[in-house]
Amino acid sequence: MFSTVKKISTMVIFLSVQACVGIQTVGPGPFDVQKTMQVTVGKEWTKYPFEPKTGLQGLTIDGVSLNSLTFGVNIKDGKALIYSSDPKTLVPRFRSDMTDSEAVEYIKDSLIYSGMKNVSLANLRPETFGIATGVRFDIAADTERGLNMSGTGKTVIHNGVLQLILYIAPTEYYYDLHIEEVNEILKSATLL
């Protein structure tokens, strides 16, 4: 029923275990994501270990359930943002011939698949992402338990692979708390 809660709980446990070995802080200053993307962060963020199976790298300031800045790097054709041990599992998968609006749709569907409810996109607009033109977008959603969430992000398909940055936080208080910092981070994104 509450699969998102389970996933978050599993993630929290995973991150707690990782705390002994892999959690570091980054910033203020430039931050390289897997030697593929670089952003400039204005505050100190906590960095969670890179997840090679999904290509996702997470940062947070107050904890992943309160603000989560996720980087997806070099997502190749056929890859899913949701990890499954069974490669035959039917999940939204990236296709290298997607249009930029389809790339945003792929991110949205991945959020829905992972348990977010009432996901809606707003304000899709072109925005430079390093040397390429990507798409900037805003998101509204609810967790399964009913917490209103807001988000913003940008994505680009360049040389057949997808890069993305997605910020999500509870709408009440936490989204606004760091949105100016996040907007600056998004503006600063370059591809290496």
Partner: peptide
């Protein structure tokens, strides 16, 4: 439409 600016581009 939420993607109005994109379509205009």
């Amino acid at each position: 439409a939420p993607d109005r600016q994109l379509v205009k581009s």
